[in-house]
């Protein structure tokens, strides 16, 4: 799937803003901003386009009281790299899991849950992965003192 095809496919997603970025400056080819409820649909689309999930990253925007979740997708055949981002509220960060489509997301989501307290609804077992099993803190939140 070429970059142009992918862009048109992604633009069909509800409420998506697709920006073509300069790979030499940003490190990604496409940057998509999307509503959090469309994430599973996006994951399915990326899976159909034979993209691999590379990582799930959270970013805590304390000033905006929002948490951003960035999904990094790569294609092993075309080398296209796509970053999809969505924002959820900081009080109740919730987004649907994509581990049913990309099983590799299971661990990435558990990690993001550890670090940011993001709840991935529908996740098979959202228990701490890297933090101790009784950890009730989220170290990568900006108001976590350390």
């Amino acid at each position: 799937m070429t970059l142009a095809e992918l862009t048109t496919r992604l633009q069909t997603l509800q409420g998506s803003t697709v920006t073509a970025t300069d790979h030499s400056k940003q490190g990604v080819n496409l940057d998509i901003t999307i509503a959090s409820n469309v994430i599973p649909e996006l994951a399915r689309l990326m899976s159909e386009a034979k993209f691999a999930l590379e990582a799930i990253t959270g970013v805590d925007w304390l000033a905006e009281q929002q948490i951003e979740i960035v999904y990094d997708f790569t294609s092993y055949t075309s080398g296209i790299r796509v970053a999809a981002r969505t924002r959820v509220s900081r009080e109740t960060p919730e987004v649907a899991t994509i581990s049913d489509v990309h099983p590799g997301a299971n661990w990435h989501e558990r990690e993001s849950h550890d670090f940011f307290g993001i709840t991935f609804t529908g996740h098979p077992g959202l228990i701490p992965l890297l933090l101790p099993e009784d950890a009730d803190f989220h170290p990568l939140r900006k108001d976590y003192g350390a």
């Binding site: 790979h23 993209f51 691999a52 999930l53 990582a55 055949t77 080398g79 790299r81 590799g104």
Partner: peptide
């Protein structure tokens, strides 16, 4: 190769599954 794709496996694990993906070439 499909398992690698679904789990995001890369490197020699991926190339040992027949996918010629190497960041040095791809990006």
């Amino acid at each position: 190769a499909d398992v690698c794709r679904r789990y995001g496996g890369t490197g020699p694990v991926l190339r040992g599954a027949g996918v010629a993906y190497d960041v040095r070439k791809a990006e």
